[in-house]
């Protein structure tokens, strides 16, 4: 198992280097790995299918143009692109045109977006995840929302939820472990 993972890691590293050298097929591979995830994150923030698709495309266009700014010692490639996606989506919600069209945006959890999603024919374990999020403890909903969908730092999350930083770490691990158990990993 470990050997397998080390192998994929090396592949990923090489893939990223090729992507940075403007290799289109490496770009496509990375896109296929992360685009559903990024579209999910953006959609959770902007809550509009069309806008989400438009923003997600901009995210990958931005990644292509700024590929050379990524470096593996700054973090995972996934995390890098996740940051671009969250920032682009949050910027979108702050734009004038968006505010005008979305006066009554209520602050739902990612849980509601996932639970109401009817796109079930994807390769992802949507059905299992739907069930999982609907059963998720309230404290897990908050913490996953802030850390993964909103991009809060551990300090910001600790302040927002009024719990100590150490608790953020362990509680979040507990929540992600539940997710992993459900996914059978």
């Amino acid at each position: 198992m470990q050997r397998f993972h080390t192998f994929t890691w090396m592949n990923l590293d090489q893939l990223v280097v090729r992507f940075q050298q403007k290799d289109v097929s490496a770009f496509e591979t990375l896109y296929n790995m992360y685009s559903d995830s990024m579209l999910g994150v953006v959609n959770t923030i902007v809550r509009d299918n069309d806008i989400a698709q438009e923003v997600m495309q901009d995210v990958f266009i931005k990644a292509w143009h700024n590929a050379e700014t990524y470096s593996s010692n700054k973090g995972r490639f996934f995390t890098w692109i996740l940051n671009i996606a969250r920032n682009a989506a949050i910027d979108k919600t702050r734009s004038k045109s968006f505010k005008n069209s979305k006066q009554n945006l209520n602050a739902d959890f990612f849980v509601d977006i996932i639970a109401s999603s009817d796109n079930l024919d994807r390769q992802t374990d949507s059905i299992g995840i739907k069930k999982f999020v609907s059963k998720l403890a309230e404290k897990c909903k908050n913490i996953i929302e802030l850390l993964y969908f909103k991009g809060y730092t551990q300090k910001e999350a600790s302040e927002a939820l009024e719990i100590p930083i150490g608790t953020i770490k362990t509680r979040n691990r507990g929540c992600i472990n539940e997710l992993r158990n459900m996914l059978g990993e």
Binding site: D36, S37, V41, N49, T124, D125, S126, Y148, L183
Partner: peptide, 10 residues
């Protein structure tokens, strides 16, 4: 996390 976030994709 990739699977969780992808579930929100329309």
């Amino acid at each position: 996390i990739i699977k969780l976030t992808a579930a929100g994709s329309p």
